[in-house]
Computed example of a mutant assay.
Amino acid sequence: MDNYKTQLLTTSNIKTLLKPRDFSANKGDYGHSLLIAGGMGKMGAAVIAARACLRSGTGLLTVCVPKSERSILQTAIPEAMISFREDNTDFSNISAVGIGPGIGLGKGTGKTLKNLLKHFNGAVLLDADALNLLAANHKLFKKLPKVTVITPHPKEFDSLFGSHASEEERRNAAIDLAIKLELVIVLKGHQTLVTTAGCSFLSTAGNAGLAKGGSGDALTGIITALLAQGYESFVAAKIGVYLHGLAADIALVEQSMESMLIDDVIACLGEAFKQTMA
């Protein structure tokens, strides 16, 4: 971090990145997101990621879940299509993939990740259990497409890259590793860091109301939607991180940091978009 200038993510620089919606557009103009998420006892992760993805402008969304859990998603998110992890995934019409929230660490999920990296060459985001699978098999790093987005929290980052004594040390390591591995790293925390190729930003939005389960699942959905709409990986990560935090700040009008739920944050994404595009 000492060798590279780290800038601040603010509303003003996010405004320069967001593309206005074309009034004559149709759903085919805004990409097809695929979320590989959820599992027995963790379908909430899939629902949260899907809801955030749809609220962030993706044209179409398919969620890949275990067949036995399909009714949960079909009931909670009727706007989403479903595919099953037991089947071979068809990536031919997919614009971007987010994988990891709630998928677990079984043999089947490892196979799913390997299959994705083998057969899909588009924009990819890895979070949660996908990062844990990566930590258990470092050979998979070589199979990641360039500028893949990874979104670890501090514990996941240390699992991937070894222990770090402080937040500053972890940020320095993230900046160096993003260069070395040609990744976009979103290091989640009090001030989330977004870094790639020596270019780094710290978000100025967000609050401790996000320090709860489900927050990372929503961020996965937001960034995946932006990737599907054609934003470059680093740009999608910056916009997604800032909107996620800003929506949490907006949610404080009605909630406290103690009472805030991730559904409250997702419900405020519309206002976050409005404020950054005004």
Rank of each mutant, 00 (worst) to 15 (best):
1 M>K: 05
3 N>R: 08
3 N>Y: 07
5 K>F: 15
7 Q>C: 11
8 L>D: 11
9 L>W: 00
11 T>H: 06
16 T>K: 13
18 L>N: 07
18 L>I: 15
19 K>L: 05
20 P>N: 11
20 P>V: 13
21 R>G: 15
21 R>W: 09
25 A>Q: 06
26 N>M: 02
28 G>T: 04
28 G>C: 03
32 H>C: 04
32 H>V: 01
34 L>W: 00
36 I>H: 07
39 G>I: 05
40 M>E: 14
41 G>C: 06
47 V>Q: 08
50 A>M: 03
50 A>G: 08
52 A>R: 00
53 C>E: 07
55 R>L: 00
62 T>G: 03
66 P>D: 00
67 K>L: 04
67 K>E: 06
71 S>I: 04
73 L>T: 01
73 L>F: 02
78 P>L: 01
86 E>S: 06
88 N>P: 07
89 T>N: 04
91 F>M: 09
93 N>F: 01
96 A>G: 05
96 A>E: 00
99 I>M: 08
104 G>N: 02
106 G>H: 10
107 K>E: 04
109 T>Y: 13
110 G>P: 09
111 K>I: 10
113 L>T: 06
116 L>D: 07
118 K>S: 15
119 H>V: 03
120 F>L: 12
125 L>G: 01
127 D>P: 04
134 L>W: 07
140 L>A: 12
141 F>P: 05
142 K>R: 14
146 K>S: 14
146 K>M: 11
149 V>Y: 10
151 T>P: 03
153 H>T: 02
158 D>Q: 15
158 D>L: 09
160 L>W: 02
161 F>V: 02
163 S>C: 08
163 S>Q: 11
167 E>F: 09
169 E>A: 12
174 A>M: 06
174 A>C: 06
175 I>N: 12
176 D>Q: 11
177 L>M: 09
178 A>E: 01
179 I>Q: 09
181 L>Y: 09
183 L>W: 02
184 V>N: 12
187 L>T: 10
189 G>W: 15
192 T>P: 04
198 G>H: 05
199 C>I: 14
199 C>N: 15
204 T>G: 14
208 A>V: 11
209 G>T: 11
211 A>W: 10
213 G>M: 13
214 G>E: 14
215 S>R: 04
217 D>P: 12
224 T>W: 00
224 T>V: 06
224 T>R: 06
224 T>F: 05
225 A>Y: 01
226 L>V: 03
234 F>L: 09
236 A>I: 05
237 A>R: 14
239 I>V: 10
240 G>P: 13
240 G>H: 12
242 Y>P: 02
243 L>N: 04
248 A>W: 05
248 A>T: 04
248 A>E: 02
249 D>V: 09
254 E>M: 08
255 Q>V: 08
255 Q>Y: 07
256 S>N: 11
263 D>H: 06
264 D>I: 05
264 D>P: 08
266 I>A: 13
270 G>Q: 13
273 F>I: 05
275 Q>C: 02
276 T>G: 06
277 M>G: 11
